[in-house]
């Protein structure tokens, strides 16, 4: 009971061991490492969307592989840096590895990633995907984040999770919910992290 009472007495901010500045700096360092290949990243995102809109199964499979690669890239790149400042990061990276494997499985042995405009779910999904791909970084710019520390799809976890939620909702998958669990879980973790950082 004592142990439980002790843990319950902590505020979220008490458990974070890094500052907001250090967390933002992770994205700056990621962007520095990628530079000057940001154009290639943008091309891959456009290619993923174009392939996902194609009717051919092989294109849809390729789109799924690119989405899985984005999750794997975040697990590999972002979490490698994040692990330096957060002892829980290797565990959190597991979320991204698991999601990359799940999407890769859908791409290789399932229907792939085929998105469309028809229906309310698909349109909401596309709006969320656009938010993850463009809206999220633009909002950060608007609130004063420097261009060098922008969070981008395929590099940073938040826009990757948001865009994936949108793409899965707009996809023709009959049961997208199981694939939404981990991106939604990450969004919750990210929201708690920022809340703790900004209120600590």
């Amino acid at each position: 009971m004592d142990t439980l009472a002790t843990w319950l007495s902590y505020r979220p901010g008490d458990l974070l061991m890094f500052s907001p500045e250090t967390y933002r700096r992770l994205f700056e360092r990621l962007n520095l490492e990628l530079w000057p290949w940001h154009g290639l990243l943008a091309l891959l995102v456009v290619a993923m969307l174009w392939l996902a809109l194609r009717p051919e199964r092989v294109a849809q499979r390729a789109a799924g592989i690119l989405l899985a690669a984005a999750w794997a890239a975040v697990a590999w790149g972002f979490f490698d840096l994040y692990a330096e400042i957060n002892l829980l990061a290797p565990w959190l990276a597991g979320v991204f590895v698991a999601q990359a494997l799940a999407i890769a499985a859908i791409a290789l042995v399932g229907p792939g990633l085929a998105i469309g405009y028809a229906g309310r779910r698909a349109r909401i999904g596309l709006a969320i995907a656009c938010w993850g791909l463009l809206g999220h970084p633009l909002l950060l710019l608007a609130v004063g984040r420097s261009p060098a520390s922008l969070e981008l799809f395929g590099l940073a976890p938040d826009p990757t999770a948001i865009a994936t939620i949108g793409l899965l909702l707009s996809s023709q998958l009959r049961h997208p919910v199981p694939l939404l669990v981990l991106p939604l879980a990450w969004c919750l973790i990210a929201a708690l992290t920022w809340w703790a950082l900004l209120t600590a």
Binding site: L16, F18, S19, T22, E84
Partner: peptide, 13 residues
């Protein structure tokens, strides 16, 4: 050094 020195391998920090 709680929080303040936890900056990882960032050379600038």
């Amino acid at each position: 050094t709680w929080i303040t020195f936890n900056v990882g391998s960032d050379p600038r920090a």
